[in-house]
């Protein structure tokens, strides 16, 4: 039908799709360096909004809250997710079938349902909404993601190395400590990184379970979008995008290393 062996249509579509994915982000970054009061009209390049950002105390407070929750939620969910993955991988009982369903379900429930149901629970139990409730909520959805990532890593590697360790004189604890965990580490770190970004980025669930004084960065950005100062958001968003790029780059490096060892 045509001289070229492959159709150009998919290539063109892919290019358009990538353009579609990146144009809003690029425009946003561009505007963050705009001096104008109204972000949509281009005046001249400046770092004014970044400087202004430095003096916005509320942002720093929100960032501190976000990081505090992200770090604690990541640590907790990494431990819970790793033990869950080990249990799911090692045992084939009916308990583990239920366990798997339990871990899987939060992945398919829309955020708004998770947020609302947790809010109702906290209200019903008379728990004061605030940092602690956000932490509890974040761990609940992060556990599932960490479990899935670690489980994938576990399913990838050869179980016989654990038997080999036992065979060479390692008891269960030693085999776990010297062989299983070092091999699992890239998976655990990748899971933790995922949990960290998800927690840092979560808006909907946080929105439902936050209380006075527990404004996180996404909550703050949301209120800025609704009522605030657009150029300031541009600048903040650009910083966040930069951080994301670094995180993705870092995790890719980690994955590459994992692939090399595996």
């Amino acid at each position: 039908m045509s001289a070229s062996r492959r159709s150009l249509f998919p290539v063109a579509m892919t290019a358009l799709v990538l353009l579609f994915l990146y144009i809003p982000i690029l425009v946003l970054i561009l505007y963050s360096f705009n001096d104008g009061r109204f972000s949509v009209r281009w005046d001249h390049a400046s770092l004014k909004w970044y400087r202004r950002l430095l003096h916005e105390r509320a942002i720093w407070h929100a960032l501190r809250n976000s990081l505090l929750i992200a770090v604690t939620a990541t640590l907790t969910s990494t431990v819970l997710g790793t033990t869950a993955a080990l249990a799911l991988h090692r045992y084939r009982s009916r308990l583990q079938k239920v366990h798997y369903g339990l871990v899987y379900a939060p992945l398919v429930v829309p955020d708004i349902l998770a947020g609302m149901s947790l809010l109702l629970l906290f209200v019903a139990c008379g728990v004061q909404l605030g940092m602690s409730t956000i932490y509890l909520a974040h761990v609940s959805f992060c556990v599932s993601y960490v479990t899935m990532v670690v489980l994938a890593r576990l399913q990838d590697f050869d179980v016989s190395v654990i038997e080999a360790a036992n065979d060479l004189g390692a008891n269960t604890w030693q085999a776990t400590r010297y062989v299983l965990l070092p091999l699992l580490l890239p998976g655990i770190v990748a899971g933790g990184l995922l949990a960290f970004t998800l927690s840092l980025d979560d808006f909907v669930i946080t929105f439902f379970v936050s209380g006075p004084g527990s404004t996180t960065l996404p909550l703050y950005i949301y209120s800025m979008i609704r009522h605030g100062n657009p150029p300031l958001i541009n600048a903040l968003s650009t910083l966040l995008i930069a951080v994301t790029f670094l995180a993705v780059w870092g995790s890719q490096r980690l994955l590459a290393k994992q692939r090399k060892d595996g």
Binding site: D158, V179, D261
Partner: peptide, 14 residues
Amino acid sequence: QVNTIFQNYALFPH
């Protein structure tokens, strides 16, 4: 006091 050579060797990759 027995040790095994595994079919796929099961060397520790790390």
